[in-house]
Amino acid sequence: MESDVLLNKLFTVNSFNSLVFKNRNQTYLKAIEDILGNTGASETNLKNFQSLYHYMARSHRNEYFYKNALLNKILLGRHSVRTSTAIRELPIANNILDFLIINGVGHVYEIKTELDKLDRLQNQIASYFEAFSFCTVVTDETHLEAVREKIDQPQVGIMVLTKRNTLHVDRKAVENTNDLRHETMFKLLRKSEFETILLDEFGRLPEVNQVEYYRTCLLWFQNINILKAQQLVLKQLKLRGYINRDKQQLFDRVPSELKMLVYFSDYTQNDFDHLQAFLSHRIGDVV
């Protein structure tokens, strides 16, 4: 459906911020017209987004809906933005993991909505276990039996986004450290991150030409005990968190429907203020 396509496009970081800060509202206006009709024109932007999200909850639980549920119910519900970090769409071993939460351990959440196929699931999970020790597949009730059949590893957790939009643990994830690979973990790191690790561990960096530098850094990293290496990598990845202590109160004011869009946007205080002004206004109002 066209309305579903519009929602997929609207509930992305780039599209949302283009609307809030640049007034690029074509997708937003079309979504309101198609889904909310005339009522949307007289409502605040906050009310419209809540109504669009409610429509998604009933009729189109897309990937954003799943990720936002994980952010609200696990990162914010069980943990805290002060102690935990969420990372999305992280490239790893020829795959891209959907959602990662780091809180002492790294827990991957692989999303399989009712709209997704399962043919790549086993390969995806195998790649995630090369860097992280906990993995859970998050799926719809209609997919549950198929996921159970597809996943024969007892270490892999299964979680269901129920019809009531709660997260139910069907099978708890169990730690798996048998498949960790130094090279896979190393490739997750930015240059500054692996240099920090090597400096802390060896007190210096390789003195080789640029052609050999990356390969030599990897060789040094491979000399670190693999469980310790994993913890060092998690420490660096955790520092990528967008919401620090100074921003937490501002982030707390963001509506739950929009948490994921804002979490991954690295807002300044002025950005948060602008967002609140945008949400309180109606379509067409100058913010």
Rank of each mutant, 00 (worst) to 15 (best):
Glu89Ser: 00
Leu6Glu: 09
Asn72Tyr: 03
Asn95Asp: 04
Asn95Pro: 02
Asn25Met: 10
Glu43Ala: 15
Glu33Ala: 13
His60Gln: 05
Leu6Ile: 08
Glu63Gly: 05
Asn95Ala: 03
Ala57Asn: 11
Leu71Phe: 15
Phe65Pro: 02
Tyr55Trp: 15
Thr12Pro: 02
Gln50Ala: 09
Gly37Cys: 10
Ser42Thr: 13
Asn14Phe: 12
Tyr64Thr: 07
Arg61Tyr: 09
Asn38Asp: 15
Asn25Arg: 11
Pro91Ser: 06
Asn62Lys: 08
Lys47Trp: 03
Ala41Ile: 14
Leu76Lys: 13
Asp4Tyr: 14
Leu97Met: 05
Ala69Lys: 13
Arg24Gly: 05
Asn95Gln: 08
Ile32Tyr: 04
Asp98His: 03
Ile96Leu: 00
Ile32His: 02
Ile87Asn: 03
Asn17Ser: 13
Thr83Leu: 13
His60Met: 02
Leu52Glu: 09
Ser51Phe: 10
Asn23Gln: 12
Ile87Ser: 03
Leu29Asp: 03
Asn14Gln: 13
Leu29Arg: 10
Phe49Val: 06
Leu19Phe: 09
Lys22Cys: 10
Thr44Arg: 00
Phe49Ser: 02
Leu75Ala: 09
Leu29Phe: 12
Lys47Ala: 15
Ile74Cys: 05
Glu33Val: 10
Thr85Gln: 10
Tyr55Ile: 06
Phe99Pro: 00
Leu10Glu: 09
Tyr53Gly: 03
Thr44Ala: 06
Leu90Gln: 01
Leu19Gln: 05
Met56Ala: 12
Glu43His: 14
Leu90Ile: 00
Ser15Tyr: 01
Phe99Arg: 02
Leu90Cys: 04
Ala57Gln: 07
Lys30Val: 10
Ile32Trp: 02
Phe49Lys: 05
Ile96Glu: 00
Val5Ile: 13
Ser18Thr: 07
Ser18Ala: 12
Ile32Pro: 02
Ser15Asp: 07
Phe49Trp: 10
Gly37Met: 13
Glu89Pro: 00
Tyr53Ser: 11
Asn17Trp: 08
Asn17Lys: 06
Glu89Cys: 03
Ser15Trp: 01
Asn62Ser: 09
Asn72Lys: 14
Gly37Glu: 15
Lys22Val: 08
Tyr64His: 07
Leu19His: 00
Asn95Arg: 06
Tyr28Ser: 08
Ala86Leu: 08
Asn25Lys: 14
